[in-house]
Design a protein around this nucleic acid. Structure first.
Lengths: 355, 355
DNA sequence: ATGAAAGCGCTAACAT
DNA sequence: ATGTTAGCGCTTTCAT
């Protein structure tokens, strides 16, 4: 047989997960180049200890043979890890969370931020009711830290993870008694911006769409109520519809409200999806947007500007968010403290509120 | 969405990347338990060779000490790898592709399919013009194979990758001379379904929105033209607007058409985003949807049913797609042949076409 | 400038 | 049932 000398014992290449057999390794390159593995290693890592000539020769040889290094071995030896786990919670019932374009675009933003810094992004989904499992890929040594997109109702579990020393960054609101690092938009400010704008446009009777049991929506609602009070409006000026992030449910609830003859002239939604979903229902009941009812969304997903009418919304700085979360995580991994970060949001005025 | 990734910095091997020091390892557990590492290994892996008593004792000890195994070491030893790389191309100019909800939901579907099978999903973004770089994480030994979401214009590069032996599955059209495995919707059939339906609704003058230079759109267009011919219509009955996947551009082009006085009674779009984006422009020019112009989209993203009017569209089986791609990839990884797969699509009729 | 050799944390023969 | 031992593929002293 013309196998390479010192051929490994016949290792029956098992099913699926086996590393491809006969894969070139450093020893092969070394043998072919007539040098030692040490030299190959140094050459491939651009060490100046090898002569420029051999370095080039080896580099080219490796390239031409399509050799690539084994990361597991390298990581083991170096005790390194450059993988970050990004965990996306999903709602067991609706599964809606992850299909919301906002969270998906956050994923893109994180992918960019991590790629730029030379980190790998490992994505996993997890039941939103069991966020304590989020640390799995950290525990198993696969990832050096966890970025969680959405804190939901899991404040306590997340605190527990942090207490266990899991490097953890969560997209969400900054809460009291918080021992993990959160990065989030300025929800209070966002709620205020949207509401103030609507009040300025003459709106007086509001419908609030969201999930006030989650910290983010709760803060937005507080911002909303704050502005109401500031304008001298009664709290009853706002009717809160707890529809979660479920567009279908938002339509049903708003439809019911209209059938009941409840009157309102503004909708404040906790996502652009909710906001745009509700427009056709309003039309169906003879309410023109923005003439009769002004609508403001949240997130400024790409879609918002193409909606009909183009949607006024509170823009969350997605690209910035990815960068901030990654930076915060790397701080935590380095053992340094990473204070929560609140990112500024911005009102983008389009037609849906211009009455 | 986020900014295009800057050129990856030559990684500053900052502190952050070091495996946490003082991390427990098997030897520690062994010492504390008063057994050998081999026994610990066996116990933790549930081998029946260790007595049930010690197995339980060790398992509990490890748990209580918060010990977790080092995956790199395990993988190295086992010559295993359970990581699949999912690569999302982005268009350097528009960056629209990846922000299209369809591709993002595909990501979710893949995450599910991989998680179910115990594989990790590594996500990276890559310039659509340089798909040959898609194999990076395979080359580096990080991933056992590559799933690429979208083939774009890169047929040749993909063939080259396949020739190099990279286990590769691509979401896209099945092409002649194809040496990689593709999984895709039935684009020809989808184009036919949409068109036949519109013809049945009495439409005779069509606008086709898409990027006919990509295989997928090209097939849909062929399906479209096929049905036109079948119905005895001239090829001129269809005006093709090559707008890519760019919603803004679609609006501009359709607006221009209307201003030129070009008349048409149907729009066939290659994505739901394009289809819904165009509706407001039609309205602006006094065309009611569906009364004056019927509109059909493609993909059936969640959003489609909430659009105004609810969008008739060709549904792509996203959940199925994730499963099929993963299965095909595992076949390739196992060294077996994986023929291209074409998944059935389905017309979902909603209001936008009911005239 | 290059090589020999040790060992990263784990698993699996092969003992016992 | 448990321990001993030999590596997995790499990097890095320490020699030469």
């Amino acid at each position: 047989m013309s196998l390479p000398p010192a051929a490994p014992e016949s290792d029956p290449p098992g099913p699926g997960t086996q590393t491809r057999p006969g894969r070139l390794q450093m020893a092969d390159i070394a043998r072919i180049a007539g040098v030692s593995v040490a030299t190959v290693s140094r050459a491939l890592n651009g060490s100046t200890e090898v002569s420029a000539a051999t370095r080039q020769r080896i580099t080219e040889l490796a390239r031409s043979l399509n050799y690539t290094i084994n990361i597991s071995a390298k990581n083991l030896r170096l005790r390194h890890n450059r993988t970050v786990a990004v965990v996306i919670p999903y709602d067991r019932q609706t599964r809606l969370h992850v299909s919301d374009p906002f969270f998906l675009s956050m994923l893109g933003s994180l992918a960019d931020a991590l790629t730029d810094r030379g980190y790998d992004m490992l994505v996993s989904r997890i039941d939103a009711d069991q966020l304590e499992n989020a640390s799995l890929s950290y525990d198993s040594g696969t990832a050096l830290g966890i970025i969680l997109i959405g804190q939901w109702h899991s404040h306590d579990q997340l605190n527990r993870l942090a207490d266990q020393g899991v490097p953890l960054v969560v997209w969400g609101a900054q809460l009291p008694q918080q021992r993990y690092c959160s990065v989030g938009g300025d929800n209070l400010g966002g709620g205020r911006l949207a509401t103030r704008h609507l009040i300025e446009r003459g709106c007086r009777r509001f419908v609030f769409l969201g999930d006030p049991t989650t910290p983010e929506s709760a803060l937005r609602l507080r911002g909303h109520q704050h502005e109401l009070a500031e304008a001298g409006l009664e709290p009853e000026a706002c009717r809160v519809l707890a529809v979660g992030f479920d567009a279908a449910r938002a339509r049903t609830e708003v439809g019911r409200l209209l059938e009941q003859g409840v009157d309102f002239d503004a909708v404040v939604a906790c996502s652009d999806v909710l906001a745009t979903a509700v427009v056709p229902v309003l039309r169906l009941h003879g309410r023109e947007v923005p003439r009769d009812v002004a609508v403001v969304g949240y997130d400024d997903i790409e879609w918002a500007s193409h909606a009909d009418p183009p949607l006024t919304t509170v823009r969350q700085p997605v690209a910035r968010a990815g960068i901030e979360m990654v930076e915060a995580l790397l701080e935590r991994v380095a053992g340094r403290d990473a204070p929560p970060r609140t990112l500024p949001v911005e009102l983008v005025v389009r037609q849906s509120s211009m009455r």
